[in-house]
Nucleic acid binder design. Structure first.
Length: 701
DNA sequence: AAAACTCCTCTTTTT
DNA sequence: GAGGAGTTTT
């Protein structure tokens, strides 16, 4: 495509954003305003008109899907070979960089990458060793991850500790976790970002090298950056360098993962001289849908003001229907889909049903089945999460990096080799004493007759398999995987289905280079969705980001569901729930339905539901209200939970209390009412106690 | 290795 | 109130 035609298919604002190529630029792009298009076109423009080499542009996205799309778009716009360009996710580009440069930080370049599962496994292991409450591993992992994504190290965290023992324990686990990772020569997802930042800090000459290499930085979905990512961008892009970030603060919905919208608000300050532009024309939805979405989102207190307008004037009203319970709600959705389908204007794949929590899919699925409507759930269990797939990958990682103790523990007894916990913990103690890897310790134990002959034989078998695999030079991942299933005896011990999944894994690697394949699967959440033909899409509101459908249903518009009850006592979180709703609404091109129910079964009990406060913000003229059951009481936004029937609890789960006898503990649950209000509190070293509030004499701290 | 048990979670989840 | 995962028991 010529330089001129690159510009032709853009509107004036998009063109301006593309042509502005000197210094920092923040592009605030509303939903459906073509931001991905602008980023891709800008990349192409930099190549074509500005004659930048592809390798001098760093283009960062959040998902593999987005980076793949960007790559394809740039390729089709320019026809140029962009094979060596730095287009990719933050994580993949950091791992690429660290594979070259990590040595000064004391890791080897063949490091393993641990995903969340591996991270949990390791943390659990540490908790067990410290004799801490092992079952809390998930919370501990989440907390450590959030500290890491904010670049807070264990020592720094400890210095801000609460002084009651919780944070000290956590810091101890955190510290150990980091040293275990290093011992395994492994990085978790947060390390990929955090260690890149650390590397740049410790080795300014390396930073300088990359600052020179990258003549231009492009960032998509900027509102989703966490602190580490923001720091990285500042390191590479500060000082008036060329950086364009594109994002929409109204679509920031990953706060719980460490994303910080404030990065959008900080940009102008931290990148002095930054130009701010807006893309406000929406190419997706009808004006009526946008009016509704805008009415809701504009109620958020801190947001960059933006207008939102469509070339598609008018459009149908938005529909809202209130029903008796979730089953009726689901039936209503299914019937409406059927009706629209039978009119012949829509195919089944034009419909999406969105919900706040996965649990809500159940009733919808049943109703769709009853109506014989084909559907699929987006974002269900991922291929790479399967046990057999993870096992094979763990074998590969161990072969490539024999320090990888987590992978070793995973595969040492699978298939069953009779190597039990006792043997392993003995080896582990040895390993710690001699500061060697588990693999080395096992190998020397076999040689030195350190164990009984029966055990020795078993260990020897395992060591031989790994050494044999490691001694060969494999070019492709497929070759190694085939040998693994053969030589390890894995093939014999799995059922047909699992064997098929392994075959699928091998097939999916094509002829990829071994190292590339490992990195790809480590940084990949799911196999490319095989384009489901002609069926209704079911997904969470989070899962819907970036997608669009002619007809969208948003279900469960009730207080406690959307906004979700856990978000209710925090203003920032309610704002995020509102953004989530906004993201859902702006997925719709033509028809948008809201549904809610008076009664819903949530966590094993039926609950009476009230209409979501967000519905109160929708202008009456835009919306057609259909009431199949008694009119809902629409909650007013200005009334934070004041009319709930039950007396409010002085505590919420997660807060800390002091007990006269047991000291400080964490509240895990509150239940019962009136005189019978009870709390469940976890006291360190004592365990969980259930207390009646009236008698317990607790003090909030 | 299967069965029984215990304990935990129960929001969202780009990598 | 169900499902998952781990541990202990047989």
């Amino acid at each position: 495509m010529s330089k001129e035609s690159l510009l032709e298919c853009l509107n004036p604002q998009q063109r301006e954003a593309l042509l502005y190529t000197e210094g920092p630029l923040l592009i605030l792009a509303c939903a459906g305003s073509g931001k991905t298009k602008v980023v891709a076109h800008k990349f192409a423009y930099l190549l074509k008109a500005k004659k930048f080499p592809a390798s001098s542009i760093l283009a960062l996205t959040f998902t593999n899907k987005a980076s793949k799309e960007m790559r394809e778009r740039v390729l089709s716009l320019t026809g140029k070979d962009i094979g060596d360009s730095w287009i990719g996710t933050f994580h993949s580009q950091c791992s690429r960089l660290l594979r070259k440069e990590i040595r000064p930080l004391g890791y080897k370049t063949d490091f393993s990458i641990y995903d969340e599962d591996d991270q949990c496994t390791l943390i659990r292991h540490i908790l067990r060793e410290f004799r801490f409450h092992e079952a809390l591993y998930k919370g501990v992992a989440a907390k450590i991850s959030s500290l890491k994504s904010s670049l807070i190290g264990p020592e720094e965290f400890l210095s801000t500790g609460d002084g009651f023992g919780f944070d000290e324990k956590l810091a101890k686990v955190y510290l150990r976790y980091q040293s275990e990772l290093k011992r395994c020569n492994a990085l978790d997802f947060d390390d990929l970002l955090g260690l890149t930042v650390t590397l740049f800090e410790k080795k300014p000459e390396i930073l300088e090298k990359y600052r020179e290499r990258f003549a231009y930085i492009l960032v998509d979905e900027f509102q989703d950056t966490n602190y580490a990512q923001y720091r990285l961008l500042r390191q590479l892009g500060s000082g008036g360098r060329n950086i364009s970030v594109v994002g929409d603060d109204d679509q920031s919905i990953y706060r719980f993962r460490g994303a910080d919208v404030n990065n959008v608000y900080r940009f102008e300050k931290d990148f002095p001289g930054a130009k701010v532009m807006r893309l406000e024309q929406n190419y997706r939805s009808t004006q009526n849908i946008l009016d509704v979405a805008y009415a809701v989102i504009s109620k958020n207190p801190t947001r960059k003001p933006k207008k939102l307008w469509s070339g598609r004037q008018g459009g149908e009203q938005v529909f809202h229907c209130w029903l008796a319970d979730e089953e009726e709600e689901a039936r209503h959705v299914a019937k409406t889909i059927k009706e629209l389908y039978l009119k012949g204007e829509y195919e089944f794949n034009d419909f999406a049903v969105l919900y706040r929590i996965n649990m809500q899919s159940r009733s919808v699925e049943e109703a769709l089945r009853d109506e014989a409507i084909p559907y699929h759930i987006v974002g269900a269990i991922s291929f790479y999460q399967r046990k057999e797939v993870k096992d094979i990958i763990a074998y590969m990682r161990l072969v490539l990096n024999r320090s990888d103790n987590v992978s070793l523990r995973r595969v040492v007894n699978s298939p069953p080799r009779g190597i039990g916990a006792a043997t392993l913990s003995k080896m582990e103690n040895e390993a710690k004493k001699k500061s060697l890897s588990l693999f080395e310790v096992i190998r020397s134990a076999v040689k030195a007759n350190g164990v009984t002959s029966a055990v020795k034989e078993k260990l020897e078998g395992f060591i031989q398999v790994i050494e044999q695999l490691a001694s060969r030079k494999y070019r492709t991942a497929a070759d190694l995987m085939r040998d693994i299933v053969e030589k390890s005896g894995y093939r014999e011990c799995v059922d047909v289905e699992r064997a098929e999944n392994i075959e699928a894994l091998i097939a999916s690697s094509h002829e990829t280079d071994l190292r590339d394949f490992i990195d790809r699967v480590s940084l990949f959440s799911g196999l490319d969705e095989p384009a489901k033909d002609k069926s209704v899409s079911l997904m969470t509101l989070h899962g819907a980001k970036g997608l669009e459908f002619p007809v969208v249903f948003i279900t469960g518009l009730e207080e406690g569901v959307l906004p979700y009850f856990k978000a209710l006592d925090n203003q920032d979180e309610v704002s995020e729930e509102r953004r989530l709703f906004y993201v859902g609404m702006t997925r719709a091109k033509e028809i948008l339905w809201f549904t809610g129910a008076s009664r819903r079964k949530l966590y094993a009990k039926f609950q009476d539901q009230q209409a979501s406060r967000f519905l109160a913000d929708i202008p009456k003229k835009c919306c057609c209200w259909i009431e199949k059951t008694k009119a809902p009481q629409v909650s007013r936004a200005v009334r934070p939970g004041s009319d709930s029937k039950k007396p409010a609890f002085p505590y919420v789960a997660g807060c800390r209390v002091r007990h006269p006898k047991w000291g400080v503990g964490v509240v895990r649950d509150c239940y019962g009412d009136g005189e019978e209000q009870k709390v469940m509190v976890n006291f360190p070293n004592i365990g969980i106690k259930k207390l009646v509030l009236r008698f317990a004499n607790l003090e909030k701290i």
